[in-house]
Design a binder for these strands. Structure first.
Lengths: 251, 251
DNA sequence: CCGATTTTGTTCTCACGTTCACAAGCTCCT
DNA sequence: AGGAGCTTGTGAACGTGAGAACAAAATCGG
C-alpha cells in the first residue's frame, strides 16, 4: 500500500476507494468504448476522443477516471489497452461472475440466448423455472432446470448474481428465495418494487417505465395544446363510483 | 389559462410545467403503485402508504406530486383513482402512442409478445426487420414486415416512438432512418451510443451495463482482499504487442 | 361552534453531480 | 538543453436532488 498519495488536509476525503455512484454507472460505458477503439487498432486516445466515443463530455470523463487513479499521460492521452484493463479490474470483470436466470418466459429465453452475454465477465450457470412444462427444455447449450434446485446450484457454483425474469406475481417470492440461498445482487425485470435486506444490491430494468418517460417528453413536444384541460374536481367520467371526496379508508 | 396561481416574487420560478427529470422518472412508478392499490379496492391512501408501495420515502413522494398540482386532501390523503388519472394524464398515457419495433431477434420477439405492453398507453403498430427470412413470420397477432416499409408506416400511423432491438452493428443506421422518417423518441436496446439530432429523445437499456454495475458492488462486498494488486506499469500479460507507452496515434 | 388530530404542501439546508477553467507535467522541436 | 504546445488532473463555482421540519388546511369529537 502506498501511503495515500498526497492526501491534502482540505481534500474531499473520498473514503478509501469510494467511487461516486454516478461514475460507477458510466465505467461500463467507457469500457465498451475502449474495447471498440482497441478493436479498431487505436493504441492511444485523448480524453476528448474517449468522451466522444462514450457520449459524454471530456471534463466529466477525466473526473471519472481520476477516481480510479492517475492512468493517462499529460500531453499524450490514455493507453487504450492499459486503461481498459484498469477499468475492467475496477469493475470486477477480470474475473467471471456466476449468474442464474429465473423465469424462462419470452424474456428469459432472449437473455439465455444473448450470446457473449455482453462483454465477458459473466457466466450463466443455470436457467430456472417452476413450470414443469419448461423444465428440461434445451436453450442453446443449456437445459432449463427446476427452480427447486436453486439452493443447491447457488452453493455449488458460488452464484452471487440472480436475474429475475418472472411475471410480477411470483417475483418477490423468487427474490426472497434467491437472497436466502445466498445471492447478494439481483437484476429485476419484473414490474414490481422488490424489497430486500440490507447488503443486497438490486437494480431494476423496466420497459414500460422507459416508454412512459419517453411519452412524457413526447407529449411536451407535440405542443402544449395537446394537453387535455384539467378537471379540477374528481368528476371522472368512465370510472366506477367514487366517494364524493375523502371518506377515509380504514388504513 | 389561470394566471399562475400565487406566483411569489421569490418562488423557484419553475418554468411553466417544468417537472424535474428525477421526478418524471418516478411518476410511472407511482402510477403503477396506484393501479395496484386501486385493484385492491383501496379508495384513499396517504403519502406514507403510497411511498411504501412505490419504494420511496414519503417526503420525496409529496414533493414529486406537488409539481403536478395540489391533488390530495390535508388530513385525509389522496383519492387513488383521481390521482391515478392525473398522473396518467401528466405522463401522457391517457392517449395511445404508436410504437414500432425494429430488429426481431430474440429480444424483439420477447417485446412483441410482451402482453399488455406494460400498462396501457402504447400500441405496437409494426414489427420490422431487414432479414428476408424473418419477414412474414407471425408473432402473436402481428406479422413481421420489411424494414423498407418504415417511412410509409410511420407516416400512416403517426408513429412517434421507435424501439431498436437490432445488434450493435446496424443500430446507428436504423436510428438515422427512424429519425428521418419522423420518429422523435427512441428506446435503444443495442449496446452502442447512438447519436441523434436535437429534439429527439433517446433512452438506453443495457443488460450488460446493469450487470457490470452489480459486479462492481459485488466485488466490494467480497472483501477488498479479492482485489488483485495493481500493476503500476503497462506490462500487461496476455495482450498483443503494446507500444512501450505513448507513440501518438494519428488523430 | 371550537379545539385536537391528522396529513398535505412547502421551505430550508445539505449532499451530490456537473461543468469550467487552469496549473502541472509530458513530449517534441529547434 | 530549453522553450513551445498539448493534454491530464483537479480546485472551485454552479445547479439539481434529497430529506428534515413545519405551517396550513381539512376532518372529527365534544
Amino acid at each position: 500500500m502506498t501511503p495515500a498519495r498526497s492526501r491534502r488536509p482540505g481534500a474531499p476525503t473520498r473514503t478509501e476507494r469510494g467511487i461516486p455512484e454516478a461514475t460507477v454507472a458510466r465505467l461500463p460505458v467507457y469500457l465498451r468504448a475502449l474495447t471498440a477503439l482497441s478493436d479498431s487498432g487505436i493504441a492511444t486516445a485523448s480524453s476528448e476522443d474517449l468522451a466522444t466515443a462514450a457520449g459524454v463530455n471530456s471534463a466529466k470523463l477525466r473526473k471519472d477516471l481520476s477516481y480510479l487513479g492517475s492512468y493517462g499521460t499529460r500531453g499524450v492521452g490514455y493507453d487504450v489497452e492499459y486503461l481498459r484493463y484498469q477499468i475492467a479490474r475496477e469493475i470486477g470483470v477480470t474475473q467471471d461472475w456466476a449468474v442464474v436466470i429465473v423465469g424462462i418466459g419470452n424474456l428469459g429465453h432472449a437473455l439465455a440466448n444473448y450470446s457473449g452475454f455482453g462483454t465477458r465477465g459473466f457466466r450463466i450457470v443455470a436457467l430456472l423455472d417452476a413450470d414443469p412444462a419448461l423444465i428440461g427444455e434445451q436453450i442453446g447449450d443449456m437445459v432449463v432446470r427446476d427452480f427447486a434446485e436453486l439452493e443447491e446450484i447457488v452453493a455449488a457454483d458460488r452464484v452471487s448474481i440472480g436475474v429475475i425474469t418472472t411475471p410480477a406475481g411470483p417475483a418477490q417470492e423468487v427474490c426472497d428465495r434467491l437472497v436466502a440461498a445466498g445471492v447478494t445482487s439481483i437484476l429485476n425485470f419484473a414490474p414490481v418494487v422488490l424489497s430486500v435486506p440490507d447488503g443486497v444490491d438490486i437494480r431494476k430494468v423496466d420497459l414500460s417505465i422507459e416508454l412512459q418517460i419517453l411519452a412524457y417528453h413526447e407529449q411536451r413536444k407535440s405542443g402544449e395544446a395537446a394537453l387535455p384541460e384539467v378537471p379540477e374536481l374528481p368528476a371522472i367520467n368512465g370510472l366506477p363510483g367514487l366517494p364524493s371526496v375523502g371518506g377515509g379508508v380504514g388504513a
